[in-house]
Simulated assay, not measured.
Amino acid sequence: MSAVWIERLDDMLARGEEVFLAATHGIVATLVIAAVFFRYVINDPLIWSEEFIVIVFTWMIFIGLSSGFRLRMHLRVDALLVVLPERVRAVCGLIAVAATMITLVGLIWFGFSLTMTMLHSPTPMMRISSAWAVSAVPVGAILSCIHILRHAVSDGLGQTLWTPDLIGDPDGDA
C-alpha cells in the first residue's frame, strides 16, 4: 500500500511526458518545414525559428531521458545478468541504481546551478532568458529519479533498471 502514491505520481508524470513529447515532436517538425519554406520559397527567413527549435529539442532530449528510465529503455550491458545468480544480480542492481541516482542528483545540482546562472542572460534572437533551455536538465533528471524510485519500490532494487522478463524464469527456463 505504501507504493501506491509513487505509482500514481509516476503514472501522472508519464502521461504528461507522453503528451509533451508528442506535442513537441509536432511543433519541431512543423517549424522546420515552415523555416525551410520561409527561407527558400518566400526568401524571408524566420530568424527566431532555429533558436526556438534548439530550445524545444533540448527539452525533448531531457524529457525523453526521463521517459527512457520509465520504460527501462536505456542502453545496458545485460549479458552478465543472464548468467549471474539472483543474489549477485540484486547486488548489481543496487550498484547500478546507486550510480545512476548519484549521476542524476549531480545533473539536478549542476542543472539548477546553471539555470540560476543563465537566468538573466537573454538568448540572441528571441531575447528570452537562456534559463528556459538549461532548465530542461534538472527537470529531466528529477523526473528520471521519480521513475527510478517507482521501479525500485515496485520491483525491488535488483530489477529497477531492467525488466523482469530480461532474465527469464527463475527456475532456469528462459
Rank of each mutant, 00 (worst) to 15 (best):
I42P: 02
R89D: 08
F57D: 01
V54L: 14
R87V: 15
W162H: 08
I42T: 09
H74M: 09
A79D: 15
I108V: 09
P85M: 11
H25L: 15
I53N: 03
G26K: 01
V32M: 10
H25Y: 12
W5I: 10
Q159K: 14
L71V: 15
I146K: 11
D11H: 15
V134I: 04
F37P: 06
M73F: 15
M60R: 03
P85T: 11
H120I: 11
M101N: 08
L104S: 03
A174C: 10
T163P: 07
G140S: 02
E17A: 13
T160N: 08
L65S: 08
L71R: 13
E51L: 03
I108M: 02
A98G: 01
R15S: 14
W132I: 01
T115A: 06
R39L: 00
L65M: 06
L13S: 07
L94I: 13
T100W: 08
L166K: 10
V91Y: 04
L46Q: 08
V88F: 15
G111S: 08
P124A: 01
R89K: 02
V139M: 14
W132L: 00
H120Y: 03
G106P: 03
S67P: 11
R15T: 08
V32G: 00
V139T: 07
S135V: 10
A99W: 00
P85K: 11
I6N: 07
L107C: 15
I95L: 15
G93Y: 01
W162A: 04
G156H: 03
V153Q: 12
I27C: 09
F69T: 00
R70S: 03
N43K: 15
F69R: 01
E50A: 12
G140F: 04
R89H: 05
P164C: 02
G140E: 05
A14S: 14
L157P: 02
A152W: 10
V153T: 11
A14I: 14
P138M: 05
M126C: 04
A90M: 12
G156K: 07
L81S: 09
V83I: 13
W109K: 05
L114A: 12
A131G: 02
A34V: 06
T123F: 06
W109M: 12
V105C: 08
S113D: 10
L75H: 12
V91H: 03
R150K: 13
G106R: 08
M60Q: 08
I27G: 09
F69I: 00
V28A: 06
V28F: 07
F37D: 02
R39W: 02
I53P: 00
R39V: 02
F112A: 11
F52C: 07
H25E: 14
L31H: 08
E86Q: 14
I63T: 02
I63H: 04
I47E: 13
R8L: 13
G93N: 02
G68D: 06
R76T: 07
R70K: 05
T24F: 05
D173C: 15
E51I: 07
A136C: 04
M126P: 01
G111L: 02
A79H: 11
R70F: 08
D44V: 04
D171V: 13
R127V: 12
T103Q: 15
F110I: 11
L13N: 03
L166E: 05
V139R: 06
H120E: 15
G26A: 01
A131M: 00
G158D: 10
D171M: 09
